[in-house]
C-alpha cells in the first residue's frame, strides 16, 4: 500500500464523498464552530444532548477530505452515547491521531490512524474532535453556542 493509500483509505474517501449527518440540526442543545486558522477551514457542529446522552449530532462547514471524513465518522460514533463515553472516545481518538496507538473502542475510526504519520494534516483530522470537546464543555456550562480554534483547543498533543 502506497503512502497516499495509507492516509486516504477507501473508507475515508467514501465518507468524504458521502458524508453522514451533514447539515444543520434543529432543535439542538449546542452549536459549536471550529476553525483551523492555518487553512481557513471551518466546521459547525450541532449536538442534541438529553439526560446526559448525545441523542443527535450533525455538522456543516467546509474542509478537506480528511476533515470531512473525520467529522462524518465522528458524528456516527457519538450518536446515542453517554457524555462520559464520548469523552473517553475523544481521548482515545486524540491519542491515536498523535501516534499513540488505537484503542479497540475506536471501532471503524481506526481507518484514520494513518493520518498520524502525516503531521501536516493531523489538525485536519482533529478539528471535528476539538470542536466536539468544546461543544460538550459549552453544553455543560449551559451555553448554546461557541467558537474554538483547532490551535487553541486541547488536541491532546502535549
Amino acid at each position: 500500500m502506497g503512502f497516499l493509500d495509507q492516509i486516504y483509505r477507501d473508507a475515508v474517501l467514501e465518507h468524504a464523498r458521502s458524508p453522514r449527518n451533514r447539515g444543520a440540526l434543529d432543535p439542538y442543545s449546542v452549536k459549536q464552530e471550529g476553525i483551523n486558522p492555518s487553512c481557513g477551514d471551518e466546521l459547525v457542529l450541532y449536538l442534541l444532548v438529553r439526560d446526559g446522552v448525545v441523542e443527535d449530532a450533525r455538522f456543516a462547514g467546509h474542509g478537506c477530505a480528511i476533515s470531512q471524513a473525520s467529522a462524518s465518522m465522528m458524528t456516527q460514533a457519538v450518536k446515542g452515547r453517554a457524555i462520559a463515553e464520548v469523552e473517553t472516545l475523544i481521548a482515545h481518538f486524540k491519542a491515536m491521531i498523535h501516534g499513540k496507538g488505537a484503542d479497540p473502542s475506536l471501532g471503524d475510526l481506526v481507518v484514520l490512524e494513518g493520518i498520524s504519520k502525516l503531521h501536516a494534516r493531523v489538525k485536519c483530522a482533529t478539528l471535528a474532535w476539538v470542536t466536539l470537546d468544546a461543544a460538550l464543555a459549552a453544553e455543560a456550562a449551559g451555553q448554546r453556542a461557541g467558537q474554538v480554534s483547532v490551535d487553541e483547543g486541547s488536541d491532546g498533543s502535549a
Binding site: F3, I7, Y8, C39, A65, I66
Partner: peptide, 11 residues
C-alpha cells in the same frame, strides 16, 4: 480540497 491536492503532490 487544496490540502488534499498538496498532500497527494507531496507523496
Amino acid at each position: 480540497h487544496p490540502h488534499d491536492v498538496a498532500s497527494a503532490l507531496d507523496a
